[in-house]
Design a protein around this nucleic acid. Structure first.
Lengths: 220, 220
DNA sequence: GCCGAAATGTACTAACTGGATCATTTCGTT
DNA sequence: AACGAAATGATCCAGTTAGTACATTTCGGC
């Protein structure tokens, strides 16, 4: 099927142009970093021109910021599907950890954007109210599980959901972010499928271990 | 005291010049990334000139590579002081984890260099035999503890020292690398002194939990 | 004290790169 | 169908930056 754009020179289509640019920009920034990315490189991979980048996104940093938001948005959308309310607390937590681990694996561009943003001290991320809101919401699932676990007496008191989230994120994130250096040094075994399953299980176990009340049953 | 260099124009001092350049380069690369760093910026902070950078390090990438090696060297030197052989396995492991956690905190430049290197898929790191050797040696302490723990019957069988090291590194590294984004989103409480002690303890606990043999005493 | 290689300083350049300018086309509204 | 705002294309430019050419100084060995 030939679109209008192909038949004639071009058609006005602001939204599609914006999305086209944004998608390419995300890939380029994720691949090359902020200063490493060339605006011309983005433009040339686009169906439109550099002119439009500046028209819609003001400047390189504006484009980068929106690409960052797009990355967060995409990843948080993928999390929404997870429903754990019907599971007992231990099982729910185990699922959440395993899911988080896998979810990070499936979103390398997101990981790289966050890495890059951290290199820049999260200065752009800090400006984005959108991103803060998304993430604070993301921790509610975990808080909920903690509360249920404590009410059921299977989790210990004094749990800090943020600290738990911190640890879950740490391993899930590091697994992707430092894969190149880690496997360059220690070999790639851990990043084969079998290795990944092992460290995912190890992660689940270690998280469950620190939340479980003394004397409570280990699950399974 | 006035040195010869100050009295007259300058003195030949290859080694000092090299080290001067390298120290500044490490700071600049750690702060700004590979493509974000300006060779002129390094040169101007040096007691010497850009000319010497190219004289001793060939090009920007050569300088970067050596700065990376210097960062690794410095951090691995700091680890050598740790002696755990006289401690019982559980205690030794707890100490190693806590030490690793703190050691990462004390070396932000190293963290940032590794982050940057991972952005570049560890391509330069992979080339460096020096770095690989250093790191493989670093895991021996851990292997040793595992072996002792298993012989004493307090650690479970089938431990993988590399997987353990992976998890210890993950939290210790993430604690520094993602601090900007994490605290932008969730606030900085975890990175105050009290918060850091809490998550360090949480890390120690979670590692001990996954190595301990079923039914073995929790330490303390 | 002199000679040559190593070390250093100064000035320059060619290429790159973010961004701007100018001109043109589309298309909803009237 | 004409008008004006929005959207797009084609070029250009000024500042930056990695890297170099050329000249000079130091200093150990003889």
């Amino acid at each position: 099927m030939t679109t209008d754009a192909e038949r004639r020179g071009w058609t006005q289509n602001p939204e599609a142009v914006k999305q086209d640019i944004l998608a390419v920009a995300l890939e380029e920034f994720a691949a090359n970093g902020l200063s490493g990315t060339r605006v011309d490189a983005i433009a040339s991979r686009t169906r439109t021109s550099k002119r439009m980048i500046y028209y819609y996104f003001k400047d390189k940093l504006g484009l980068y910021t929106q690409a960052l938001e797009a990355a967060y948005l995409k990843v948080r959308e993928g999390e929404a599907s997870l429903d754990l309310d019907h599971l007992p607390p231990q099982e729910a937590l185990a699922r959440l950890v395993a899911f988080t681990f896998d979810h990070h694996r499936k979103n390398p561009d997101f990981i790289r954007m966050v890495m890059i943003e951290n290199i820049h001290n999260a200065e752009n991320l800090a400006e984005s109210q959108v991103i803060r809101d998304m993430n604070v919401a993301a921790i509610e699932k975990l808080s909920d599980i903690c509360r249920r676990g404590q009410e059921a007496g299977v989790f210990r008191d004094g749990l800090d959901p943020v600290a738990l989230h911190w640890q879950i994120s740490a391993v899930s994130f590091f697994n992707m972010s430092n894969r190149p250096s880690f496997s360059a040094i220690f070999g790639g075994d851990l990043f084969e499928e079998a290795g990944q399953e092992a460290i995912r299980q190890q992660t689940v176990d270690s998280i469950l271990a620190i939340v479980c009340a003394k004397g409570a049953q280990p699950r399974d």
